[in-house]
Amino acid sequence: MSDAPLLRIEGLTKHFHLPGGRVVHAVEDVNLAIDRGHIVGLVGESGSGKTTVGRTLLRLTEPTAGRMIFDGTDVFALSARDMRVWRRRLQIIFQDPYSSLDPRLTIAAIIDEALDTRGLPKGRARRDRIAELLELVGLAADHATRYPHQFSGGQRQRIGIARALAVEPDFIVADEPVSALDVSVQAQVLNLLEDLRRRLNLTMLFISHDLSVVEYACDEIVVMYLGRIMEKGPSRALRADPLHPYTKALLASAPQPDPTRVRTHVPLAGDIPSPISPPSGCVFRTRCPIAIAACATRIPPTRDLGGGRSVACLRVGEGADHPPFEMEAHA
């Protein structure tokens, strides 16, 4: 673990402007630091702003406000020209291995395109590098001459990973990288990512809606709701002792492969509200089982709890124990 984080995001905000003057508050004042060699998981319900965070970090979507200090540089302040040089240091792996690869290109050509930005001369060295990359992700060098449709979903995701690694990025955003895969194949790709992280000291933001995948794959977990961070902390601590009512509900909602567990309560009622008119105060208050009057008027400040943990809830740490989250009983 290094002293200074590889990247630090401060006050990241993204508003999308819709026709008619309406504004989507997709991301609101997100602060986050990621250490080199760490995989940070980003979880939250659909529409909570996970993809938008990932895309703005790569400036695939321009942020509305905020800074990202990456290795000492404010990336959001870079000119379009400087950004082009920077882009190769930041890569993204997409959810859908089917649509993210150009069907008309061979695997060699797909990776070759990525290597262009690296300035590696064409010829022998490139061919060797392509073979090396394919091997790195568990494919064979002779796969290079084939087309995407000749591969299975898991293999295509490996190709997407090889493409992202081709330029030796410092940081990778993986947006639901295993969500489209079957469990047996998902396990192969998770093993590959862990193996690569160890060998290449990769730093990654891992976006997923599957908590068991995030708990397994990530060192830290960030929980988002309606554009804001509710809680973050090391995976194990967060799982063992979730503090924010939303984190508790998410963990309790995840189905467990254990039929002796009998669920007696639904952890969270209702739906996530529209980000066009998010609730005042704490955005979670309309579904929060322990909300109080103050939650409607005050935006909960993020409190640093030490040990890498922080939480944004007015009622956490107020002393009194909250109504227990009785969610299950054992048969």
Partner: peptide, 21 residues
């Protein structure tokens, strides 16, 4: 092959490789 934290992460917090098919 389904991730299971109790089984797949050891006491020191190290991941065991998943039993992929």
């Amino acid at each position: 092959s389904t991730p299971n934290i109790a089984r797949d992460i050891d006491a020191e917090g190290r991941r065991r490789p998943l039993a992929a098919i």
